[in-house]
Amino acid sequence: MAEALLFYTLAALILGLGVMVVSARSAVHSVLFLVVNFLLVAVLYVTLNAEFVAVIQVLVYAGGIVVLYLFVVMLVNLKQAPERFSDPRRLARSGLVLGGVVLALIVVVVSSSLRAGAAPEGTLSGFGTPFTSGNTEQLGWVLYTSYLIPFELASMLLLVAMVGAIVLAKRHLGE
């Protein structure tokens, strides 16, 4: 019961904040909503027994990436927001259309899953063999044994992205 309450609360907040992120007029507001959104998602992760991912979510996403967004917003320092002259009706119309599409999709998915049979049984936390050791340790094992090569490739990807970002953001090469 408390679990369900927690989930619904979190889901409502996440979705509401997501709507706020998308619809906020100011980019700075949008970023702030995004931080809160990420933190709530991290809480959701904790409820799903994924403590390490939740910590990563907080550190990397909410801490690193969002700060990066904030810097960029400050750097760009818009005199006038692009949406200032946009047609409000256009936004509403687009949102309506997309809402319709979403509705259609949900209908399709639900109907198809009802047709395929009952939903997967049992709750998440009460089933399966519980993790014997801590989540972080297990994840470390898996990450550094089975997924070693993808892990190293990811590190290379980050390096390349870093170099690329520096090259792009630099005013001009040689200046």
Binding site: A104, L105, V108, S112
Partner: peptide
Amino acid sequence: TLLGVFAFVTWYLLAR
């Protein structure tokens, strides 16, 4: 692209 994805998913689900 999104419409294409929707269409594809719909087709996939209906065809199953």
